[in-house]
Design a protein around this nucleic acid. Structure first.
Length: 843
RNA sequence: GCGGGCGUGGCGGAACUGGCAGACGCGCUGGAUUUAGGUUCCAGUGGGGAAACUCGUGGAGGUUCGAGUCCUCUCGCCCGCACCA
């Protein structure tokens, strides 16, 4: 056999073309074959691929190829999340059209993905900016509207000055900055479109428990984000300007109705609509307005941090506490958020740290109503139902579980969250018609409209007569016009040809909606579309969705822990309720891959520390790059890029190549393995095959690769140390085949070349069945036992693998070093761990 | 403040359910081949010690015949959430 050098570039180009021509990775639905849907988050076509892409898609490719070899019908698609702001920014900068920029980038990225040898079914590719794709996004919008899940309302929304558009709550991250451009987000009062994701809040929370294949971290983040609180709504009657009960009520949400007797003031958010109504023209107006203005000046960062000083002003008005009829003063304060609950709060300073701080600052009473079991006040107040004490000798509030005091008929009951007292007070309120059990969520509805051009047009029409009218289904799609001059910053709102229309209901002149949809709406359903990507009759067929969905393995970045993953879960649940799919959850298993860094920092053009994957491919080939990035670290951990290691992986591939070339000709005789070195190699072959299989299934690609290195080391040692005429050629060839099969998911091009051209098989290695292994052959017939005396290793002894305990014990005690150590001592205990060690306790 | 994660050689990492800590790779040292270097191959490579041994998984305790792994406390770093009533 003539030994050719390993030439990754020639091999990779050759097989990429061949696979394309053979349609090797095209997949069709086959009800007789068990399916696996392996999916990586589709990329935004930002230009050149980066190492994060290489890592993400290499992980997915190994998993996809592995399951194909395991006989599954594998769906492994790719596409582009192609609407979005970077295209507009690039267009403004370089005077190209966003479409031109986007499609050019997609072509570039697709070429890179092909050079990486990823096993995608290219026939199912989607691009979210294609009309054939986004028309279905519009269709979904209409269906959501029909189901009452679309709403247009005015409220205080997040405005990103950098992106010049509004953002959903989920898209404001960290300290109140835009997820995309990191500008500090501002609040604006605007009328916007929403998807009512809050209708699904409970189910989105509950079903997290069913996602056993998701990282705890992601589930915790989603649960926190949804933020369910149990408590009660309590109605307070508002007094009129002269302080008399006036009939109007203000409702608050509280998790602690048991503390209602300790409510010594009442708070409104500065943005609350009642604030100006109550104070306008009164002596309190100036002080209240000062608080309102000061709050408006606070940035989101300051307000959210909890560090902003608590400001307040009395409105001059009172409410009636429903449990005791007391008049409670109404204040305005910046620590009350309009977005949460009702924008109004009953303040109980003895039981809430914030209320306590506020009460101390403004000299408001702090009557104790729940006392800790060991509180000295308890002996004095334990059975006192009436208010006798109006302040506490404490430095901070007591928010824990305790005993209710000064609480009328409820005195003596257990107080706290989800307590006897909490339920009793709420039931009493309910019987009086002044309150009710209630659940409150932190999750807000999803603001989906964007004041940008490069997105999916919202299919709605504003008619001066009929109001909001959906675009009729048969008039879809609303095509995004090409001739908007984006370089001048134009949007659809600057384009009369687009927005001038007629009302579908009354036929009169009307204005088309000019906002586009959040790009996250496009990415919330693409995995359904892959099931039936070329269907032009429907979003997808139920049959195909039932075959493929849910996605068995989803792979992507942790940055979407809430955003994309929450939205997609929401869409799937609505689809299920629409009868489009049986799946109520889109992604059965989730792997969140770590970031690829350089010298501890994220790679970025501005830092000038970007390592270009294309350069690495050019030097070492795609196979070495793929295998190396998986070898560097477990997939969910961040990794720091290191060029030297890549060279090491290239060396390893070269060694595999040479070994297979060297031994490929040894196939004529059956495997004999009758002598010790051959048996040892055969054992290693079975052990490693088992380990690599196990490791792939638990995403331990780094240890899978190191096991392959061990097999190669054992094989080359055998080849080198055993004489030519004593070597088991059939065994060597088998090891070569096993190695080729095991490495195929990682280095698909090299494996294919070795399999077909060197080992001489007619078909693709990637259609071959996965390596089998035999536990019995992997087991050694002799094992080395470690002997410990008083916890320290004192000797080793080789015994038969199936030796009984007494034999092992005997052998261990007879090891010279061991016998020496225990001489003159009493052996008190001997622990025998079969196959591992013997521990002797002597003294 | 609450929730989650992580601390192992010069570096990346391994040790899955408590059982020889440091697999595998990088780097380094020495050697062989070629010799111009590189490639390739062999040997070595946690610290201390000539050796027997001994010390070693952020730190301090504990459980156990035996702890990187379990428990308690503690230090450091990272991430998420946070005036959510």
């Amino acid at each position: 056999m003539s030994n050719r050098p390993y030439d990754p570039h020639a091999i990779e180009e050759k097989w990429q073309a061949a696979w394309d021509a053979e349609g090797l990775y095209s997949v069709t639905e086959d009800p007789d074959k068990p399916k696996k849907y392996i999916l990586e988050m589709f990329p935004y076509p930002s230009g050149d691929i980066h190492m994060g892409h290489v890592r993400n898609y290499s992980i997915g490719d190994v998993v996809a190829r592995y399951w194909t070899m395991r006989g599954r019908n594998v769906l492994h698609p790719i596409g582009w999340d192609a609407f979005g702001l970077p295209a507009e920014n690039a267009a403004i900068k370089s005077s190209t059209h966003p479409a031109e920029w986007t499609y050019a980038n997609i072509d570039k990225q697709a070429a890179s993905f092909k050079r990486m040898g990823f096993s995608y079914d290219w026939d199912r590719t989607v691009k979210s900016c294609d009309v054939d794709y986004y028309r279905w996004g519009q269709w979904i919008f209409l269906k959501f509207w029909e189901r009452g899940l679309v709403e247009r309302k005015k409220s205080a929304v997040n405005w990103c000055p950098g992106c010049k558009t509004v953002l959903a709550n989920e898209q404001v991250i960290g300290d109140g900055v835009c997820w995309r451009c990191k500008s500090v987000v501002e609040k604006r009062d605007l009328e916007q479109w929403y998807f009512k994701i809050t209708d699904y809040a409970q189910e989105l929370l509950d079903d997290l428990d069913t996602l056993t294949g998701w990282p705890e971290r992601v589930k915790t983040m989603q649960a926190n984000w949804i933020g369910r609180s149990e408590g009660a709504e309590v109605d307070f009657e508002l007094c009129n300007a002269s302080g008399e009960p006036g009939g109007e009520t203000i409702t608050v949400f509280t998790t602690r109705p048991d503390t209602l007797f300790g409510c010594s003031f009442f708070l409104l958010a500065p943005e609350h609509p009642l604030v100006s109504t109550l104070t306008e023209g009164t002596a309190h107006a100036d002080a209240v307005q000062a608080v309102v203005r000061a709050t408006a000046r606070e940035t989101a960062v300051e307000r959210a941090s909890g560090e902003a000083e608590k400001l307040g002003a009395f409105t001059g008005r009172y409410v009636i506490n429903p449990v005791n009829g007391e008049k409670v003063p109404v204040w305005v304060s910046n620590y009350v958020l309009m977005e949460y609950g009702t924008g109004a709060v009953m303040a109980v300073p003895c039981g809430d740290e914030r209320d306590f701080e506020f009460a101390r600052k403004y000299g408001l009473p702090i009557p104790p109503v729940v006392l800790a079991a060991d509180d000295p006040l308890l002996s004095e107040l334990g059975t006192v139902a009436d208010r006798v004490m109006d302040d506490v000798p404490w430095d901070e509030a007591f928010a824990g579980d305790g005993v209710m005091v000064q609480s009328g008929a409820f005195t003596g009951m257990a107080g706290g969250k989800d307590s006897e007292g909490m339920r009793a007070v709420t039931e009493w309120l309910a019987s009086e018609g002044r309150g009710r059990f209630s659940v409150n969520f932190r999750l807000r509805d999803w603001l989906i409209s964007r004041q940008r051009y490069w997105g999916n047009p919202i299919p709605a029409i504003h008619c001066p007569v009929c109001g909001l009218v959906p675009v009729p289904e048969d008039q879809l799609p609303v095509v995004l016009p090409k001739d908007v001059d984006i370089t001048k910053g134009e949007t659809l709102a600057d384009h009369p040809e687009f927005y001038e229309t007629t009302c579908p209901a009354c036929g009169g002149a009307a204005r088309r909606e000019t906002d586009t949809m959040d790009t996250f709406t496009c990415s919330s359903w693409y995995y359904f579309r892959y099931c039936d990507a070329r269907n032009d009759e429907a979003l997808f067929s139920r049959e195909n969705a039932d075959y493929w969905m849910p996605v068995d393995q989803y792979i992507g970045g942790i940055e979407h822990a809430i955003l994309h993953l929450l939205y997609s879960r929401f869409f799937t649940k609505v689809f299920a309720d629409m009868g489009l799919t049986a799946a109520r959850e889109p992604f059965t298993n989730l792997l969140t891959q770590g970031m690829v860094k350089k010298d501890g920092e994220t790679m970025s053009k501005s830092k000038g520390n970007v390592v270009a994957p294309e350069d690495m491919i050019a030097r070492y080939g795609a196979d070495a790059l793929r295998a190396f990035i998986l070898f560097m670290a477990p997939p969910d951990k961040d990794l720091d890029w290191n060029q030297d290691g890549l060279e090491g992986m290239y060396r390893f591939l070269n060694r595999v190549w040479r070994y297979v070339e060297d031994v490929a000709g040894g196939g004529a005789t059956p495997v004999d393995a009758s002598d010790d070195p051959a048996r040892a190699l055969l054992r290693e072959r079975h052990r490693v095959a088992g380990k690599v299989t196990e490791d792939i299934e638990r995403f331990s690609f780094n240890t899978a690769l190191s096991a392959m290195m061990e097999l190669l080391n054992a094989a080359t040692d055998y080849h080198r140390t055993v004489d030519d005429d004593a070597r088991d050629g059939a065994l060597e060839r088998e090891v070569a085949e096993v190695l080729t099969l095991l490495i195929a998911p990682y280095a698909p091009h090299m494996a294919e070349e070795l399999w077909r051209e060197v080992l001489g098989h007619p078909g693709s290695v990637h259609r071959e069945a996965w390596v089998t292994f035999d536990e019995a052959l992997a087991a050694a017939d002799e094992v080395e036992i470690v002997v410990q005396v008083n916890g320290k290793v004192r000797g080793k002894v080789v015994v038969a693998a199936d030796a009984d305990e007494a034999t092992v014990r005997e052998a261990a005690l007879n090891v010279p070093r061991v016998a020496e150590q225990i001489e003159g001592l009493t052996v008190r205990k001997v622990v025998v761990v079969p196959g591992k060690l013997v521990s002797v306790v002597a003294g």
